[in-house]
Design a protein around this nucleic acid. Structure first.
Length: 212
DNA sequence: CTTTGGATCGTCT
DNA sequence: GACGATCCAAAGG
């Protein structure tokens, strides 16, 4: 029997256990997973890890828990969505144990479905490669805002057994494995912690925010 | 192609 | 009061 083609498997939501590792472990595993919101789908091609505990000066949690970053300290598998530059939203996946601050920033996805909706939400994007090639761009395209901060990405028991992804945003595995050798680089846009190599991209993807 | 500056406001010091 | 885990248009090579 021939091996199943990439993407041909059943789309299964990631379970809680997937998110329980440190963000630096989860981040490369999130590559090639699929972000879902309504009919919109996009393959994750670029991520960055941010950790707490005073070792990552680039993390919002570097100086401890505040009102804004409190979701980072909560249970894994939830969205941490924050507002920045007075106009943009960015979305993270909370990782690690409850009480620790560890999260993966979703920096770029390759649009797979619902592109018409994305184009309408991002009229500035001239080409489809510009729809989701940045953390704030993908939040626009997927309608992720502060209203989604704290949202649980893991469907409840009923939705999971019915094969549904629920009404809110979810991340699913469609059978495409992460890259064998993801490209690791330094993170983008930081004034502190800029030397830490905690950004991972799918090699050769045309949908990343910046080519490595 | 690369570089630069403006937009815009919640959050924390 | 300063500064962003950014984006975009405009200007320069």
């Amino acid at each position: 029997m021939a091996a199943a083609p990439a993407g041909a498997g059943p789309a299964r939501p990631l379970r809680r256990r997937f998110y329980m590792d440190d963000a630096r472990g989860v981040a490369p595993q999130l590559l090639n997973k699929v972000l879902v919101n309504g009919r919109r789908r996009g393959r994750i091609v670029e991520v960055e890890a941010y950790v707490g505990g005073g070792i990552d000066p680039g993390s919002h949690a570097y100086r401890g828990q505040t009102r804004r970053n409190s979701t980072m300290f909560g249970p894994p598998g939830h969205l941490y969505v924050y507002f920045t530059y007075g106009m943009h939203w960015c979305a993270n996946v909370v990782c690690g144990r409850t009480g620790t601050a560890s999260a993966v920033l979703l920096r770029a996805v390759e649009p797979m479905a619902g592109l018409e909706e994305m184009r309408a939400l991002r009229p500035r994007a001239r080409r489809d490669v510009d729809l989701c090639s940045g953390p704030a761009k993908l939040c626009q395209a997927f309608s992720l805002t502060g209203a989604d901060d704290g949202a649980d990405l893991v469907p409840g028991r009923e939705a999971a057994s019915a094969g549904l992804t629920g009404t809110g945003p979810t991340i699913v595995d469609d059978g495409t494995p992460p890259p064998d050798r993801p490209t690791a680089t330094t993170r983008i846009g930081l004034s502190a912690g800029a030397e830490l190599p905690w950004r991972w991209v799918v090699p050769g993807s045309a949908y990343v925010s910046r080519r490595p």
